[in-house]
Simulated scan of single mutants.
Amino acid sequence: MNLNVMLDRRNFLGMFGAAAGAAVLAGCGGASSAGSNGSSGAQKGDASAAGYTLVTAGKITVASDLANPPFDFVENNEPKGFEVDLMKKIAEKLGLECEYLPAMKFDSIIPLVKQGGKADVGVSNFTITDERKQEIDFSDAYIDSNQGVVTKVGSQKTDAGSLNAEGVTIACQSGTTGEAWAQENLPKATIKSLDDPVAAVTGVQTGLYDAAAADLPVMKYLCSNSFTDCQVSIEIPTGEQYGIVVSKDNAGLTDAINKALAELTDDGTIKQLEIDWFGSEI
């Protein structure tokens, strides 16, 4: 994927930002209506019978920043990526359609899901943390991850010692575990909070920032595909796990998603999605 694809999200935001409160971007698959998979699908698609509620009957509505390739991003005004395909598979298991809202800032997703009424779930590389669990529920984990620090090829600042210094600027996505790690471990550096990791790595590439910290799979992907003059200099073994964000008031939906995730794990679907998007199992 080239840089133009990565930056397509910014065009997408400009095109759809005014409609973010009401419009839905596009379906990402699943049954055309609850019950279109036959009698079994009809039972799965009946949200009230399954013990959960949905913003729109027959659909699971997803909030995402769509800014973390290859997990989620925008291409030709359509959501793409590992998590997008995963949500499609989950929707199919539940007999539902899957629709994404227009891209939004990462740190606005949990409050949106918590308040209800606009999004059923949040899916955007959300690390399961005790702090976040005070606000919302998480599904079971569907992937393991660590953090990565990117610097420009040829930089002399490629370790924590050289980056933890006055005059050094580290770019991070606002509200993420990458930002939290940088604040805790690089206290002498200036931490610059941005909307997404693509902007952070772009700043490293142009020399605006000395480094960028974000989810390791995202950083590896960006450096391999669009920012080949940048490199992952530090791999941080944080042992994180990603989960799907669900309102505490919708425990039945969490249970249904967990059942779908277990089935997708058992039948090898998640492993295949990892190979499709990351080149190998993670």
Rank of each mutant, 00 (worst) to 15 (best):
Asp210Gln: 09
Ala211Gln: 06
Ala211Tyr: 09
Ala212Ile: 06
Ala213Leu: 14
Ala213Cys: 14
Ala213Gln: 08
Leu216Pro: 03
Val218Asp: 01
Val218Glu: 08
Met219Ala: 10
Met219Tyr: 01
Met219Leu: 05
Lys220Arg: 15
Lys220Ala: 11
Lys220Val: 12
Leu222Gly: 01
Leu222Gln: 11
Leu222Thr: 06
Cys223Ser: 05
Cys223His: 05
Ser224Ile: 00
Ser224Asp: 14
Asn225Leu: 05
Ser226Asp: 12
Ser226Phe: 07
Phe227Trp: 04
Phe227His: 03
Thr228His: 05
Asp229Pro: 15
Cys230Tyr: 08
Gln231Lys: 15
Val232Met: 02
Ile234Trp: 01
Ile234Gln: 14
Glu235Asn: 14
Glu235Pro: 01
Glu235Gln: 14
Ile236Tyr: 12
Pro237Gln: 01
Thr238Arg: 02
Thr238Cys: 09
Thr238Met: 11
Gly239Val: 07
Gly239His: 13
Gly239Phe: 11
Glu240Met: 15
Gln241Asn: 10
Gln241Thr: 13
Gln241Ile: 02
Tyr242Trp: 05
Gly243Thr: 11
Gly243Ser: 10
Val246Ala: 09
Lys248Ile: 01
Asn250Trp: 04
Asn250Ser: 06
Ala251Glu: 09
Ala251Asn: 11
Gly252Ile: 03
Gly252Lys: 10
Leu253Arg: 03
Leu253Ser: 04
Leu253Met: 06
Leu253Asp: 04
Thr254Val: 13
Thr254Phe: 09
Asp255Leu: 06
Asp255Cys: 00
Ile257Asn: 04
Asn258Asp: 14
Asn258Tyr: 09
Lys259Met: 14
Lys259Cys: 07
Ala260Cys: 06
Leu261Asn: 09
Leu261Trp: 14
Ala262Asp: 15
Glu263Gly: 13
Leu264Ile: 01
Leu264Ser: 04
Thr265Ser: 11
Asp267Lys: 04
Gly268Cys: 09
Gly268Tyr: 06
Ile270Trp: 06
Ile270His: 11
Ile270Lys: 03
Gln272Arg: 07
Gln272Tyr: 06
Glu274Arg: 05
Ile275Ser: 12
Asp276Tyr: 02
Asp276Met: 05
Trp277Ala: 02
Trp277Asp: 00
Trp277Asn: 02
Trp277His: 14
